[in-house]
């Protein structure tokens, strides 16, 4: 599974990292450290990643590939 974190729309709600701490990491400002990039979701973390995506109030994380 591969996801993209939108560089402009991530505004640091931190919900993604709450639900999927092994997938989404926050930077020192509390924003998704990978914003602007695509990342691979580690195997076994897909469900957590999806919860993180769905609870992002900005819809900043989108699915690139299942």
């Amino acid at each position: 599974m591969r996801v993209k974190i939108d560089g402009e729309h991530c505004t640091g709600h931190g919900r993604c990292a709450k639900y999927a701490p092994n997938v989404f990491i926050l930077d020192d400002d509390g924003y998704n450290a990978d914003r602007g990039n695509e990342i691979d979701v580690p195997a076994g973390e897909e469900e957590n990643a999806k919860r993180g995506m769905k609870s992002c109030p900005e819809r900043a994380i989108t699915l690139v590939a299942e």
Binding site: T11, G12, Y19, S55, P57, E58
Partner: peptide, 15 residues
């Protein structure tokens, strides 16, 4: 609730 989506803390740059 499995996922909680809300806008209580605002949305957009003024989060």
């Amino acid at each position: 609730r499995e996922t909680i989506l809300h806008s209580t803390f605002g949305v957009g740059p003024h989060r």
